[in-house]
Computed example of a mutant assay.
Amino acid sequence: MTQHRLSNVEVGQNYLAKELDSFVSTTDVVVLSNNESQLFTDPERQYKVVDVFEGFFEHSAEDGEKYFREKKAYIVEKV
């Protein structure tokens, strides 16, 4: 089986779910998909990276505060 290791993805490019799976497994990122929990259910499905953010705000359940996390977040949608 061929390895699909990605260390970077680019906005506007299409990737197979198995390539995005590899990217997420080897890189500290967040991926948001328009098909919710089914992102990795079909390894051959294609997704387009439509946007990337350098970080995001997250609410802490522990202290009720909001914190900015410097962690890239990629938006992908089914092709």
Rank of each mutant, 00 (worst) to 15 (best):
F57N: 12
V76Q: 04
S33M: 01
D63G: 10
D63P: 05
V30G: 01
V52A: 12
E77M: 06
E65T: 06
V76D: 00
I75F: 06
L20N: 07
F53D: 09
A61Q: 10
S25C: 11
E62S: 14
R45Q: 14
K66N: 13
P43E: 15
K72H: 09
Q46E: 15
K48Y: 07
G64L: 07
P43M: 10
Q46N: 12
I75T: 06
I75G: 00
N35A: 07
E77Q: 13
D63Y: 13
H59M: 06
D28E: 13
V24H: 14
E58F: 02
N34E: 10
F53I: 07
Y67W: 11
T41V: 07
N35F: 11
N35K: 11
Q38L: 11
V52W: 01
Y47G: 00
V29R: 02
E77T: 12
A73E: 11
A61L: 14
A73R: 14
V52Q: 09
S25R: 15
T27V: 10
V30F: 03
E36V: 04
V50C: 09
V24K: 15
Y67K: 14
F23D: 03
F53V: 03
S33C: 14
D51L: 01
D51C: 07
K72T: 01
E58C: 09
T27N: 14
L20E: 08
E58D: 06
E58H: 05
E44G: 00
N34P: 01
S22M: 04
F23K: 06
S25K: 15
V30T: 09
E65I: 00
F53R: 15
L32Y: 08
R45C: 08
L39Q: 05
E62A: 11
E77A: 09
V29G: 02
S37C: 09
N34D: 13
Q46H: 14
A73N: 10
E62C: 07
H59T: 07
R69F: 11
E54A: 07
E54L: 02
Y47T: 00
V31W: 06
K72W: 12
K72P: 00
G55E: 01
F56H: 11
V24F: 13
K72E: 05
S37E: 12
N35W: 04
F40M: 03
E65P: 08
Q38A: 06
L20D: 03
Y74I: 02
A61G: 12
V24Y: 15
T26N: 15
E65C: 12
E54K: 08
T27S: 12
S25V: 02
S25A: 14
